[in-house]
Amino acid sequence: MIRFENLSVKFRNTDTEYTAVDKVNLTINKGEFFGIVGASGAGKSTLVRTVNLLQKPTSGNVYINGENIVNYSGQKLRNLRLNIGMIFQHFNLISNATVYDNIAFALKASKTPAKEIHKRVPELLELVGLADKAELFPPSLSGGQKQRVAIARALANNPQILLCDEATSALDPDNTKEVIQTLRNIKNHYPITILFITHQMEVAKSLFDRIAVMEKGRLVEVAPSYTLFATPQSEAAKALISSDYKKAVPKKVLEQEKDLYMITYKEEGAFDPVISDVSRKFLNTDLSIIEGNIEYVQDKPIGRLLISLRTRDEKDKESVISYLHRKTFISRLDAE
């Protein structure tokens, strides 16, 4: 559906050059709910903006339905954009136009006849659960409602692709849930491909089929959501997941404990009694649990335990860790 081929975007100032996206190769399948995660400044937004050419790539190609679009312009580019909806972090609604007119705008863009617009706008408002808000102006809506209006606008022309650029990052948790629920609902009813950029791992967890991790413009890992959360391979992915997890533990605790490890159980291993195994097998080892939880990614459980390991010497420690390695997924957690 969408394929990036050796895609690079460079920004040139007078004397400096900055590579925002660095030779990215990635294929997003039709109907997928695909997430790109990464710290801010990783180049995610720049990458996604090349799909509808809001950002022109410096080199490389972007294929949509097999067609290279990087040189599109004029009417051809406008037609492409009609087929790609987009929502933004700050909603970007026309503040002096009603909710109705904001959605009607997208339909006018596709030269929809007035009669058809009149029929279609209420349908779209119904879809995002804002049927009674048609005559209101955006400043009187909550963040979640604004984003739902933006979703309705983005979907007005029945696009095949929906791009979401940090669509929930400016929202509080309740409004985030509201927007996520709306997107899920849409995904369940329409065969649309969604490409969603976020730095919020909470959002990534609950939405995506597959996730790509970006760091400093490069794609460092692509995996199904569950695999990524349960067994992250790249340092960037590990850092993102553990930073999310560390938020649950007081900073003081993290700083006090020297040898902190995160043990992750995947679904099939969730019932193995590894902790009691360790205390039985390694008598000189103290293992204490600092924190633990079970989260669900794509409706499958991932169990996590944050443990502190105290052993007599390094050799013991290594054997404990290698034992845990065989049974679970374990990674060291740094206080930073």
Partner: peptide, 25 residues
């Protein structure tokens, strides 16, 4: 600028953006 960008992303023509976004805002 974000509002204009969102309007461009819908595939609207310049004249529609001028009339329905720039003039209104």
């Amino acid at each position: 600028a974000g509002v204009i960008e969102a309007a461009i992303a819908t595939g609207a023509s310049h004249s529609l953006i001028i009339r329905n976004v720039l003039l209104v805002e």
